[in-house]
Amino acid sequence: MSSEAVHADRAHPSYVRIYLALLVLLAISLLGPMFGHPIVTLVTAFGIAIVKATMVAAYFMHLNIEERYVWYILFVMLGFVLVMFAGIAPDVMLPAGQNWLHLPITPPAPPVHH
């Protein structure tokens, strides 16, 4: 089977080196908040989380040598999550709304009884 052949041929990268790189990134994400700047924290915390997760996916899960469409499958799913977030966040994050007019309530006329 072709994939078996691919497996036998592929040279394993140095997993220990990737692991060490991940640990360095972890250290940076811990040091980030010490600058006390929220943007820096955002980048070191979440930017680095994305880098780390991508490295784990690419090298440990071997997505780098997997069929390309597996990436697409996973990214489409992530895309659905983003769609969900984009659709829900305006309501949950801004429940008071923007530029809403607060009109006085006029009670409806009482029903006419025949």
Binding site: S29, L30, G32, P33, T41, L42, A45, F46, I48, A49, K52, A53, V56, A57, F60, M61
Partner: peptide, 19 residues
């Protein structure tokens, strides 16, 4: 297992770093 690891990589900043 790597996937579970990757999820934790995101949970860590979400619950522990961002303060």
């Amino acid at each position: 297992w790597h996937f579970v690891d990757a999820v934790w990589i995101f949970l860590f900043p979400l619950f522990y770093i961002a303060k």
